[in-house]
């Protein structure tokens, strides 16, 4: 194998690992949430070349947030506009009301800073802490994705855990693992944009 061939192979391996593991020094991963309606907004995960600013990878998903379009309404309004930091990502989060694959967002005061402070918000789905489904009743179970009304949230961004598998939350998580890969608490600087 020539030196040139080795170099090409090495470059290919570096590139592969760069995309398989955490975002490299030359790439950045961020989410963009475009608010159209409480149950029919759009969430993208983006891989950006930090040198050129170009988006070199993007996947998009239907997403929901809130039950009203007033971003100042605690427990009701969709996520306020602006930039957020990511506070962490967990595959098996086991909160009392939010479980499974989640990304936690930083706090945000609504209406450009004049109103309610919104806090403890996540990107998540309706699933159990082990990424499964728990659907004991014929009604709306909190850890079971029954249908489109599950896009409603109290303020968080929600993506579907619906068949066919991998579900949207599964594909979002796989993309995160491929492009960024961090887990646990960390600070993802300016990693979520809401418009």
């Amino acid at each position: 194998m020539s030196t040139r061939s080795c170099s090409v192979l090495l470059a290919a391996l570096i590139a592969m690992f760069a995309f398989a593991g955490e975002a490299s020094a030359t790439t950045n991963v961020f989410f963009a949430f475009h608010r159209y309606g409480n149950t029919n907004s759009y969430l993208t995960i983006n891989l950006q070349d930090t040198n050129s600013g170009a988006i070199i990878g993007q996947r998009g998903f239907r997403a929901g947030s809130g039950t009203s379009t007033d971003e100042c309404a605690l427990r009701q309004g969709w996520l306020p506009a602006g930039w957020y930091d990511l506070r962490g990502h967990f595959d098996y989060y086991n909160g009392s009301l939010i479980k499974g694959r989640v990304w936690q967002l930083s706090d945000k005061r609504c209406n450009g800073g004049s109103g309610q402070l919104r806090s403890e918000l996540f990107i998540h789905s309706e699933e159990t802490s082990d990424e499964g489904q728990y659907c004991p009743t014929a009604y709306d179970d909190p850890f079971c994705w029954e249908g489109d009304s599950d896009y409603y949230s109290l303020g968080c961004i929600k993506v579907a855990h619906a068949q066919p598998y991998p579900s949207d939350v599964g594909r979002l998580d796989a993309t995160w693992d491929s492009w960024d890969g961090r887990h646990g608490y960390f600070t993802g600087y300016s990693a979520v944009f809401v418009s």
Partner: peptide, 14 residues
């Protein structure tokens, strides 16, 4: 605090 921007971009840590 400029609440439209991220906290980290203003030097604010958790």
């Amino acid at each position: 605090v400029d609440w439209y921007q991220s906290l980290s971009s203003q030097g604010i840590q958790t």
